[in-house]
Structure formats: structure tokens, C-alpha cells
Nucleic acid binder design. Structure first.
Length: 598
DNA sequence: CGCGTAACCA
């Protein structure tokens, strides 16, 4: 380490103290730091002083994300060689904690630079940071290479090495790889459990995540904040409100409710289960909210059909100091606009996102814009928009267009969109069903037949619709035309009564939306027996008058059921919340929160 | 030391 000048020896503790003060007070002002920096240089605490550089880098890297890495790296490059291992590690950590792929690459090249210099050897702190960066890059091969270096360096038996590898596989979506590592671990600590649970929760296997949690519980391992986040996020994804609530109670018991991450995901859980009021209450009760909290509620309001409120909340967020909307916030806002028919507003927010917030639109944002146009009936414009997009349209984009075409009856464009989808993702039943429903509504029966044959030929099976309702502690499942329930007779009597009452209110069944495999003469019956209607009839006889009814459906609610449920909410004076495949409908007093625009 | 929240369609 180079010798310090006399002044710097005297000043160093003071500068250190200033930096610590900034840190402990959470002041994230780079300007203040630069002032201290300039002051210290003026007074002889040279930037080339390794100690000073070390503190600076440590401070910079510890700033709330994203840390100013270019500045930290500049300081780093001015430090005299040889560079202390702590400094290397700190800089690698900084890059590893940035969200961008570019930063992860920098972390890896920094590590290589360190190895090449040959002056210092990586230690137990280097590898976890490095592996974290590699996991973010989702580069299995590179991860495995580094892991073998870790083993050669003699760190292989350390639990962090095994956990890092486990996390790497989980982050790359290789769940069997992750589980294999987990299974072979002689000692599984809480981090290992959390990583494997989170891997399943984040890769479309929420049920498996919950099952692993049960196993963990049986081994007497107590969950922490990390576990809670993964579990609640899994619950939110499958709409398991009852289980989510149990975890909420557990959080209160264990004193885990003060954690910001946990609170944010709790808010998301309630919003995603249609409990907007609870979500709002949680939000209002939060003392410190970060932009994730705001974004979660904005998205929550948007998917529940409260687009106007979502936008109002966004205005509040903008006026709050220090909160910067991110790309996900804008997905929520654009989603709100597209699902509420606010075409002009949507384009305005898209412009502001780029110009004011300098956010480069991703495919998700373009997807919202296509949806905005297509949903509003401007399918031709949507198609032109896709053609002019700077990004390669993906399957979601085409499916959005197809959705718009089927709703607004543009057969030509619908077929074109489906051809595009077919190339990108064959064997997706939803698209066949969408198209065949559209043909059915136009009485183009030969085309319906054609699609049906294609489905048979391609071995595509449509997912049967089902609805879930909860009474007490039990979940009841109903399929279309289901008669397997013990109270079936009662339910069907209620269903008949329901239909008669609705007819008096002017309800006319719309039979165009019936699935392809239902015979013509059965259509009206099949509609009457759609699973959500059966589920609602069951709830009408099983729950006290005026109590709200919640239904979770695996598919989209059809137009006929939608208009029927609106009337049910009025005739029976019930608030009915239906969770669709992708959004919520809040029925009350004969109308729905989506205002028939969904 | 290593594990954490929010995202376009259906």
C-alpha cells in the first residue's frame, strides 16, 4: 500500500467519517459525495490513495440501486496497483447487484482482469458475487465453468458454492438441474430451501413451490422473509387467497411484516386475488413505500379493471419526490389504458415514457400498444403498428392482434396473425379455439370444421374450462356441464331459477361463443352450464345473502356469461368477483368494473 | 458470503 501524505493521514479519518455519515443517514446524494471527494483531493488525500479509493468505491457501490458504477470504476482505475482484494470484490459486487446484463458482463470481465493480473487471488467473497452476476446473465455454461474453478480452488464443499450453483440453475429455468444440486446437498440450510422454493415459484410451478415449503416445514425449518416472498408470490400467481392469508397471519406472528419486500408482495397478493380494498389499505398503511410498492398497486388496479384509478395513482407517484417510475410501471399504465379504451392517453404515456423518463420501450410495451389499438377495434392500425415496430414481433404480439381481430371480426387479418403464431409456437390450443369461435359467430361452419380437423390432426386439445369457489375451508371445482357435485340437483334447480329470473330482466343467451365440440342443438344448454354459472349458482345456495362471491376461472369469461353475471349481481344483490385467466371482473348492481371492455 | 417483490396475450 502506498504511503499517505501527512495531510491525508490527518484528513482520512474525517473523510471516512463523512462517508459513513452519508451512509448511515441514507443520503444518496452523489453531488455531496463528489464535494467530499474534491475536497479531499484539494487537501492532499489523493485519489491514488488506496484507502481513500476503497472507501469511495465501497460507498458508491452501497448506494441504492442502480449504483453509479461508471464513477466507481473510474475511481477504481485510478487506484495504484496492486489493488487490494477487498476493492476488487466490492466492484464485482457492485456490478453483480445491477440489474442490467451489461453490468453482469462487466463483473465477469473484472474477474478475468483480476486473474490475468496475477497479483491477487480470488477469495471466498469473490465467488459468491461472481456467481450472482453469472446467474443474472442466465449463462449456464459459464456458471458451470466458474463452478469448476471454485471446486479446484478448494471451496467446493462450502455451502455457498452449492447454493450459488443451485441458484444459477434455478435462474436459468433449469428446475431439474436446480433440484439435483439441492437433493445432493449434504446439509441444506435456509438459503438452499429458499433458492429451490423460489426457483419453482418463479418458473411457473407455484404448486411445487408450496409443496416444497410443506416439506421444509416438516423438517422443522422456520421460514424467513425470503421464503415468505417466494411463497406469497406463488400464491398470488395461482390465486390461492386462503393459503396466502394463512401465510400473512404467520408473518404477523413471526414479526416479518415490517420487511418492505414482504409487504410489497403481500399487497400484490391481495390485488391479484381481487381484494383491491385490502391492497389499498396495505398500501396506505405502509410507512416507507418504494417504487415497487407504487408499481404493484398501479398494476393491481389496472388488472382489476380500475384503469382510471391506476392512472390517478400514477399521477400521485410522479408528484412524489425521489420516486421514479420504471419500465414495469409503464407496462401497468399502458395496460390500464388498453383495457379501458383510453387510446389517446395510452399514446401520450408511451411518448412521455420515452421522452421524459428515457425508458427504451421493450416488447412488452409494444405489446400494450398493439393491444390498445386492437382492443379498441383499430385492428388495421394495430397491424401497421406491428410492421413499423423496431423490434421483432413475438408470439404475444400476434396473439394480441388475433384477439382483437376475433372480437372485432376481421377474418382476413385473424388468419394472417394465426399463421404467424403457428410458425412461432405450434400446438397452442387457445388460438385454434379463438379462431373457430370467430368462424362460428359468422356461421362459417365449414371453416369451423376445418379448424376442428386441424386440431385433431395436430393433436391439440383445448383446455377444459373450470371454475373454483371457496366455501369455508373447502375449494369446490366445477367443469362445464358438471353434474358430479353432491348437491348437483339443488344447484341445477337454482341455475334454472337463475336463468328464468334473468330472462325476465331481458337476458337473451348469446350462443356464438360456444366451443367447437358442442353440437348445434346443445348450444344453449351448454351456455347455461358454463362452469362459472354453475359455480355462482352453487354459491347462491351455499353462502349467506348479500355476501360477496369470488370465482377463479382458468379461461376467459365468455360474453354470454359476462352479461348474465352482471344481471345476477343485480337480481340477487351480490357483489361477484370473477378472476379470469388474466384479469378481474368486479360485478356489482348490474355492471362490471371492466365496463364491458375486456 | 449465497436466496426476495411488480410485466404485453390467453
Amino acid at each position: 500500500m502506498p504511503p499517505c501524505s501527512e495531510t491525508s493521514v490527518l484528513l482520512l479519518p474525517m473523510v471516512e467519517r463523512c462517508i459513513t455519515l452519508l451512509q448511515t443517514h441514507g443520503v444518496s446524494s452523489l453531488t455531496k459525495l463528489r464535494q467530499i471527494h474534491a475536497f479531499s483531493i484539494r487537501h492532499g488525500v489523493s485519489i491514488s490513495d488506496a484507502e481513500m479509493g476503497k472507501h469511495l468505491i465501497f460507498y458508491l457501490v452501497s448506494l441504492p440501486s442502480p449504483p453509479p458504477m461508471s464513477y466507481a470504476h473510474k475511481v477504481f482505475s485510478k487506484i495504484e496497483k496492486p489493488i487490494n482484494i477487498f476493492v476488487w470484490n466490492t466492484l464485482i459486487r457492485g456490478y453483480a447487484e445491477c440489474s442490467s446484463n451489461y453490468a453482469s458482463v462487466s463483473a465477469v470481465s473484472l474477474y478475468r482482469e483480476m486473474k490475468v493480473s496475477g497479483l491477487v487471488e480470488p477469495d471466498t467473497h469473490t465467488y459468491p458475487f461472481l456467481l450472482k452476476a453469472v446467474a443474472k446473465m442466465a449463462d449456464v455454461r459459464l456458471g458451470e465453468t466458474i463452478h469448476s474453478v471454485v471446486i479446484r480452488s478448494g471451496f467446493g464443499s462450502l455451502i455457498f458454492a452449492q447454493n450459488s450453483l443451485l441458484h444459477l440453475y434455478a435462474n436459468c429455468g433449469d428446475l431439474s438441474g436446480a433440484y439435483k444440486v439441492f437433493d445432493k446437498m449434504p446439509e441444506k440450510d435456509l438459503v438452499a430451501w429458499n433458492s429451490v422454493i423460489n426457483g419453482f415459484a418463479e418458473n411457473g410451478k407455484p404448486n411445487e413451490a408450496l409443496a416444497l415449503y410443506t416439506e421444509m416445514n416438516s423438517k422443522g425449518i422456520k421460514p424467513d422473509g425470503f421464503t415468505i416472498v417466494s411463497l406469497l408470490s406463488a400464491c398470488a400467481k395461482i390465486g390461492a387467497l386462503t393459503l396466502g392469508k394463512r401465510i400473512h397471519v404467520y408473518m404477523i406472528k413471526m414479526g416479518l411484516t415490517r420487511n418492505l419486500h414482504s409487504r410489497n408482495v403481500l399487497l400484490d397478493l391481495y390485488a391479484r386475488c381481487g381484494r383491491v380494498k385490502e391492497a389499498k389499505r396495505l398500501f396506505d398503511e405502509m410507512v416507507d413505500k418504494n417504487s415497487v410498492s407504487w408499481t404493484s398497486l398501479i398494476v393491481g388496479l389496472a388488472v382489476n379493471g380500475f384503469g382510471k384509478e391506476a392512472i390517478e395513482l400514477f399521477r400521485d407517484m410522479e408528484s412524489k419526490e425521489g420516486l421514479v417510475p420504471c419500465e414495469i410501471t409503464f407496462v401497468g399504465i399502458l395496460y390500464a389504458c388498453s383495457h379501458c379504451g383510453m387510446v389517446k392517453e395510452g399514446f401520450e404515456y408511451f411518448r412521455r415514457m420515452r421522452e421524459e423518463y428515457k425508458i427504451e420501450p421493450r416488447i412488452e410495451h409494444f405489446g400494450c400498444m398493439v393491444d390498445l389499438l386492437a382492443r379498441a377495434g383499430q385492428v388495421k392500425e394495430a397491424y401497421e403498428y406491428i410492421m413499423k415496430m423496431p423490434l421483432q414481433p413475438n408470439v404475444v404480439i400476434w396473439r394480441t392482434l388475433l384477439g382483437g381481430c376475433t372480437v372485432h371480426g376481421d377474418a382476413e387479418l385473424a388468419e394472417y396473425a394465426r399463421l404467424q403464431i403457428l410458425q412461432l409456437e405450434p400446438n397452442h390450443s387457445g388460438d385454434y379455439v379463438l379462431l373457430s369461435n370467430m368462424y362460428a359467430s359468422e356461421q362459417r361452419w365449414s371453416d369451423v370444421q376445418k379448424i376442428r380437423k386441424q386440431m385433431l390432426r395436430d393433436g391439440v386439445r383445448k383446455v377444459p374450462g373450470h371454475s373454483l369457489v371457496e366455501v369455508g375451508n373447502r375449494v369446490h371445482e366445477f367443469l362445464m356441464g358438471d353434474k358430479s357435485h353432491p348437491q348437483s340437483e339443488e344447484i341445477y334447480a337454482k341455475l334454472k331459477e337463475m336463468t328464468d329470473k334473468l330472462r325476465l330482466q331481458g337476458y337473451v343467451p348469446q350462443i356464438s361463443n360456444v366451443y367447437v365440440d358442442v353440437e348445434e342443438e346443445e348450444k344453449e344448454n351448454a351456455l347455461v352450464y358454463h362452469s362459472e354459472k354453475i359455480a355462482i349458482a352453487f354459491m347462491l345456495i351455499s353462502t349467506p345473502e348479500r355476501s360477496p362471491i369470488r370465482v377463479v376461472k382458468n379461461l376467459r369469461v365468455c360474453a354470454d356469461c359476462h352479461s348474465a353475471i352482471k344481471l345476477v349481481s343485480k337480481v340477487y344483490n351480490r357483489e361477484i368477483v370473477v378472476r379470469d385467466r388474466s384479469r378481474f371482473h368486479h360485478f356489482k348492481n348490474g355492471s362490471c368494473s371492466c365496463q364491458d371492455y375486456w
